Amino acid sequence: MAESQPVADGHVYAALQQLMLLEHRVRGLSFLSRQPLSSVLSGSHAARLRGRGLSFDELRQYNPGDDLRHLDWRASLRYGKPFVRSYTEERDRPTLLLVDQRMSMYFGSQRSFKSVLAAELAALGAWMALQAGDRVGGLVFGDRNTEYIRPLRSRARVEGLCAAIVRHNHALHATATDEDSPGQLDRALRECLAVAGHDSLIVIISDFAGVTEQTLQLLRQLNAHNDVLALLVFDPIALKLPDKGRVTVTQGELQVELEVGRRQLHRPLGEFLSGRLKDVATLLRRSQVPLMMFSSGRDSLEQLRAELGRLAVAPR
């Protein structure tokens, strides 16, 4: 009997048409430009993103109004008059979306599965980058493989990236038997490190299941020469378990249905889920990568707008 095709309803499975329509909903949004001082991307919470790089243009005589920080002292001393180095901003730069579509993402208790939310966030990020004039590409990874989409500045490339995300998303199913390849997150980060080079914007969208100390080192390496953002996707059940009812917990092929209303179960399970989320968030903050958190129980664009302008918490 042939296996039924996933129904792209935008809740359990992502729909390519819906991802493409997000193009018209991101106007005015940017990961880089004009971030307010209270933004998650600035101030005490995290260093400002570098933005596009500057390339050396020419060495010329100083003109009134030139930035004194660009004075070239060696040339000025040699010729006995002030010279400045002028720069031009690079027209574009690569934006890489690293999108998690592992089985750990195939879960949702409200609105959508984490895997679908990740697909929506990736599409929003891709459209934002294209509208900023940057090249767009990415790496989409499941439990066994990673697909690389080379960055280009074109609408067709965004569609190609979204199509790759949808392919991986539709490969997820509850009866999967080859999931949970240990270390796949780290392998995807290593591949990203190999293709990113310098001065890229890297947006990692994942639940960060399976993070290790090696993950921390890889994030720091990526962040040393690139702008990196971590978009942590979680299900609202990690913050608050329902008071009653049944929850299905899966680990590989094993699925167990739990009665969460039982007192001896409710507290330890709730503490485990919320504790894991805190542990992942703590590790990401140790990497010095700006962290945004997204619930699969809420609208993706609404949350992105809020996260981009979220007040930074001043250190005590």
Score class of each variant (00 low, 15 high):
E3M: 00
H11K: 13
H11I: 09
Q18S: 06
Q18F: 01
R25C: 04
G28P: 12
Q35G: 10
S38E: 01
V40I: 11
L41T: 00
R50V: 04
R50Q: 09
G51L: 11
L54E: 12
L54S: 13
R60C: 15
D67M: 03
D67G: 03
H70P: 05
A75V: 14
Y79Q: 15
G80F: 07
S86H: 07
S86Y: 04
R91E: 14
D92K: 00
P94W: 05
L96D: 04
S104H: 05
S104M: 01
Y106M: 08
G108N: 00
S112L: 03
F113Q: 02
K114R: 12
S115R: 01
E120S: 07
E120C: 06
D134E: 10
R135P: 04
G138Y: 07
L139Q: 09
F141Y: 11
F141G: 14
R144C: 12
N145C: 11
T146N: 13
T146Y: 10
T146G: 05
R157I: 04
E159L: 03
C162W: 00
R167N: 06
H168Y: 12
H168A: 12
L172S: 03
H173R: 11
T175A: 12
T177N: 03
S181A: 12
S181V: 14
L185D: 04
L189A: 11
D199S: 09
I202Y: 02
I202P: 02
I205H: 01
F208T: 09
F208R: 03
G210I: 09
V211G: 07
Q214S: 13
T215Y: 07
L216S: 09
R220P: 13
A224M: 10
N226C: 11
I237C: 07
A238S: 11
G245D: 04
R246I: 11
V247L: 11
T248N: 07
V249H: 03
L254I: 12
V256N: 01
G261K: 06
R263E: 15
R267S: 13
L269F: 10
L269I: 15
G270A: 01
F272K: 03
F272T: 12
D279K: 12
V280G: 09
T282R: 13
S295F: 08
S295T: 10
S296L: 02
G297Y: 00
R298M: 08
Q303A: 08
A306S: 04
E307D: 03
A312W: 03
P315S: 12
